[in-house]
Write a protein that binds this DNA or RNA. Structure first.
Lengths: 101, 101
DNA sequence: TAGGTATTTAGGTAATTTCCTAAATTTGCA
DNA sequence: TGCAAATTTAGGAAATTACCTAAATACCTA
């Protein structure tokens, strides 16, 4: 884990929100958009962009940033890219801060 | 705790380094600079600036930023301002990430 | 192969952050 | 009172980040 990279990826309100939304997709995204939702894959880029009220390209880059930091996991499926949280990495971050920061 | 503010205050390599140095001052600062060191107060601005290899004003602002985020605690004593880590706030951050992020 | 949907990449402007030097302030002490 | 040391505040240049729109790419299906 590259701590600075992880912290940078989390130091933006929209990116923090995305992480929250992905924790409970059904509480944050319209049900019809989650018609084919599976916790294995997550939520696709355009649904997240719509929820964020930002352009798809901006959110695409945000998601990619968080994936590079290993906080999100991406899965390409047909023409969609689904993103979900990397719970292990988030716990690793918490543990690192607790014992090593 | 304002999560975004805390994360921003930590998303800079120099500020992360400062937090590390303050964890074990004797391992990171020259002994003579720590002549009157006390864990109750910490290390003064100019010693931290020297260690960082940056100007005093820059480091002064960095420290103030981290204090505003509640990650550091400042104590003014005569003409010196000493900074130490806020261990409770750091643990609170770790816990927040663990259970709520 | 053509056309449609989803995503990514490129390129640009505005805002923020990084870091400096100079000036102002705080505090101790002769 | 007035100088000296430590710090903070002000102001500015350069780099990075935050967003956008337009264009390119990926992948489906007819």
């Amino acid at each position: 884990m590259i701590l600075l990279e992880v912290l940078k990826s989390l130091s933006n309100q929209t990116r923090l929100n995305i992480l929250e939304w992905l924790k409970e997709p059904f509480a944050h995204f319209p049900e019809d958009e989650l018609a084919d939702y599976s916790p294995e894959f997550g939520v696709c880029v355009s649904d997240i962009a719509k929820k964020a009220g930002m352009s798809v390209p901006t959110v695409s880059v945000y998601l990619k940033t968080m994936m590079s930091a290993n906080i999100l996991i991406a899965t390409r499926k047909d023409q969609w890219t689904y993103y979900k949280r990397n719970e292990e990495a988030i716990q690793e971050l918490a543990q690192y801060i607790k014992v090593s920061l």
